[in-house]
Write a protein that binds this DNA or RNA. Structure first.
Lengths: 237, 237
DNA sequence: TTCGCAAATATGTCTAGTCTTAAATAAAGA
DNA sequence: TCTTTATTTAAGACTAGACATATTTGCGAA
């Protein structure tokens, strides 16, 4: 008895995805095993091959299956699980938590780019970029500290913008879409400045999110976001 | 002149994805704008509607487009960008970096579950679980500190396993696949134990990855991974 | 004006094919 | 035995068409 229930008329691909997941889960198909090919599964479930293909591709994207042409589909030996994190706009993140958003611009200036960022951006050190620092608050409590470098050559029109009453993140998202982004999470001890602005103690461990974005002209911006102590960023499977 | 080059015979969906991305990027289609429907784009590019659908769904998953039945497809107002992180097995991560992997089991015991973990797992505090602590090394340098609670009721056969020479992560991945996982990143200051095991100073900021997994029986395991100082986890767009 | 229903419509999903392509395997040759 | 070449296979990608389904929108009645 392989078939259990009637296949729902809508969501056949989803149904097959679940069935395959269950078979792997229940060890009917073991790690490393080759599973029946698309044509066989299509016949078994009574659907078109494209439907099976869709279902299996989904599982392959998840990392549960390994698929190679001619070699067939097998259950991944080490299911490298992937998780997705969505990086919302700070304002929305804060408002979604039911808090009132506000922000304060600490500084906005043109400065020569320090060497540490130059490498990351692929620009030469000393080149003059726009440097911003701001704190984002939720109900007057510091939520996130932003330290940003913007390449004006990649973002026409930025020179005229005043970020005192405008969120840089939002402006960029709307006016300078990026094609590629680089994202890293790390932790670091709060420096004196970090601590003061986030209203916490020096040496307090902070979660850091570094993001650098590019468009086809070149690097747009690199930003270091330091979250308030205790903040946890969650990802979904 | 909308058409630029000849559409490549292979990868039409990918080509359309890129074209749409470019049009949004070049503000031909603005944030919030409704874009032509699938049928129109199919006609324009000379492909089947299913191909356009595939391309647009991809961009919708990325968060660049908002699609709703009957309402059509529009450019997302706040492109909530999604990034994916793959969480490999520690061993593979270390070996991929060209280092030699080793690990040391600090303790393995049956202990009543502390309250803080009980809530996360949905079990009652005091229930007896398996507690493991281990350090993972790359070229004899501490890489990651693992603190894990395993629910033996969800993982038949775990009682017999000795993790002195076996990596818990790997054993679980192979023997207790999960259906759902919860993942959070945070930062915390190293405690005395953390510091000693990771061969660093107390109060040093550490990147923490917490992961809890479930199968259809119940919670499988919750683990706190503390990375060595300076470690950055990168995500891709 | 407002509520409720019916028609229109764009996406969602699937089918039964075709053709392409990467790679495992077998066959042929050196 | 080793290497090269041809064959075969299973996934990858696409097509033209069909039907399902969520919304929007317009119309008519209360």
């Amino acid at each position: 008895m392989t078939e259990r229930d009637a296949i729902p008329s809508s969501g056949k691909a989803a149904y097959i995805t679940e069935m395959v997941r269950r078979r792997i889960f229940e060890k009917e198909w073991q790690q490393g095993d080759r599973i029946p090919d698309e044509a066989e599964l299509a016949a078994e479930f009574g659907v078109a091959r494209a439907t099976v293909n869709k279902a299996l591709q989904l599982l392959a994207d998840e990392g549960l299956l390994d698929r190679r042409r001619r070699a067939g589909t097998r259950v991944a030996i080490n299911p490298v699980r992937k998780a997705t994190i969505s990086i919302p706009i700070v304002r929305e993140q804060i408002e979604a938590a039911g808090k009132r958003y506000s922000h304060r611009l600490i500084s906005q200036s043109h400065r020569p780019l320090p060497a540490q960022h130059a490498k990351k951006l692929g620009l030469s050190a000393g080149e003059v970029l726009i440097h911003l620092r701001a704190v984002h608050y939720g109900d007057r409590q510091p939520f996130q500290l932003e330290d940003r470098w913007i390449n004006p050559r990649a973002v026409p029109g930025i020179e005229e913008v005043d970020f005192h009453h405008l969120n840089a993140n939002e402006w960029l998202v709307r006016n300078a879409p990026y094609l590629r982004a680089d994202l890293t999470f790390s932790a670091c001890n709060a420096g004196a400045n970090d601590a003061r602005l986030l209203e916490t103690e020096p040496e307090q461990a902070l979660l850091i999110l570094n993001r650098t974005t590019w468009n086809d002209i070149g690097p747009i911006t690199t930003v270091r976001l330091a979250f308030h102590p205790g903040y946890a960023m969650s990802a979904t499977t």
